[in-house]
Write a protein that binds this DNA or RNA. Sequence first.
DNA 1: AAGACTAGCAACCGCAGAATA
DNA 2: GTATTCTGCGGTTGCTAGTCT
Length: 415
Amino acid sequence: MGRSPCCDKVGLKKGPWTPEEDQKLLAYIEEHGHGSWRALPAKAGLQRCGKSCRLRWTNYLRPDIKRGKFTLQEEQTIIQLHALLGNRWSAIATHLPKRTDNEIKNYWNTHLKKRLLKMGIDPVTHKPKNDTLLSNDGQSKNSANLSHMAQWESARLEAEARLVRQSKLRSNSFQNSSFASQEFTTSSPSSPLNKPVVGPSRCLDVLKAWNGVWTKPMNEITASGSATISVTGLDLEESPTSTLGYFDQNAPHISTPGINGGNSTVLFEFVGNSSGSSEGGIMNNEESEEDWKGFGNSSTGQLPEYKDGINENSVSFTSGLQDLTMPMDNTWTAESLKSNAEQISPANFVETFTDLLLSSNSGDGVLSENGTESDNGGEAGGNGNASENCEDNKNYWNSIFNLVNNSSPSDSAMF
DNA sequence: AAGACTAGCAACCGCAGAATA
DNA sequence: GTATTCTGCGGTTGCTAGTCT
C-alpha cells in the first residue's frame, strides 16, 4: 500500500512557530474550523504542512488546554493510569482534563519516570526493581497473571478512549457544519471548539454502565450464559460500538454467549472505600514535592507470597469460606463463570478478585490515593496486618477505577 | 564571566489504522 | 478489492533556558 508523505516538504517551514503563524492558524480555525488539515495551510496562508498545523493546534493553540505545572492529583492519575495502560498517552490523556497526550508524555519522561527510577521503581512495570530478580518463582508468574488481568482493564480504557475520540469526531463534524451559528460566539469567546457537545455522549453511558453494572447480580447469568445489561437506555448487548462489547484481542474478559449469538460482557467494579481522594486536590509544587519525599522510602517492599494457586491454565484463590478457580486463558467462559457464580455472590467475587489483584501487587511502591505509598512491606501474606494492607491495596486499585469512573470524558480536553 | 552540561518542552518523524475514492 | 488520503499516536530530536564548574 503506497503512502505519500503528509506533505511535499519543499518550501514548507519547519521549526518553532512564530506568533504570526499562531495568529493565522487561530484566526482561520475560529472562523472556519480546521476541516481538512491538509488543505488548511494553503487556505490559512501558512507555509506549513497540515500535520504541523494540526499538532500546533492540538498541543498548543487549542483553547481548552490547561498549561502549567501538573498537580499532585494529576501526577497520581498519570502514574496509576500508566501502570494500567503503559505508554498509551492518548488514553491517559482522556482521563486528564485539558492535558494533551504530548504534554503528559513529556511530563512522564522528564519528571515522573525519573522520580520512579530514583525510588528504585521500574517505570515500565511499576514494580520495585529488585522484583525483576525474582524471575523463577511463583511471584513472577503472579505478576504475569496480574498484568494479564490489567490488560482487561486496559482494553476497556482503550475502548473508552476510542469512544471519546469518536464522540469528538462527531462533535467536530457537527461543529464544522454549523460553524456560522451564533453558538460560536456565545459559548466561547475564543474558539468554536469550546462549544458544548450536542447530543448525548455515549461515553457517559458507558461510564454509567461501568458504575452501574453491579446492580445486575452475578446469578442473573442464566443457564444459557446470557447476561444482558441495559443501562441508561443503552442496550449494551445490542450496541455494536459499546465499550462493553469491545475487547483487546489479548485481553482477558468474561464472555458469555448472548441470546442472539452475540456476546455480552459482565464488568466488575471494585467496590469499597477509596481513601479520601484529595478533593480539589490542587497543590502547589512544594506540597507535591513533600509528598514525593514521603513516597520515596518504600521501594524495599516485596511482593507478598501469594498463597493461593496460580498456574498457566487457571487461577485459584480463596476468599473467606469460598474457593474459586478461574481459567487464565484469554477468556473466562460462561461455564467457568456460571459455576463460580453459583459459589459466590457478586460482592464476594469483587472482593475476591480484588484480593487476587492486590495480593500480587502489594509492596509495589505504588501510590495510594493520598499520594503516599501503600507500604505493605510484604506483610499481606496472612499476618495480623493483612486485612489492613489488603485494604490499602484495594484502595490503590479502587483509586484507579474511581478515577476512571469519576472523570467523565466530557470534562476532558477531548471535548 | 564564560563555557559545559542538563532539563524541559515544542515540534518532527514515521508508522498504523480508518476512511474514502 | 485496491489504492490513496487523512488522522492519530508514540518515539525521538533539537532548541532554549537554567544551572554548574
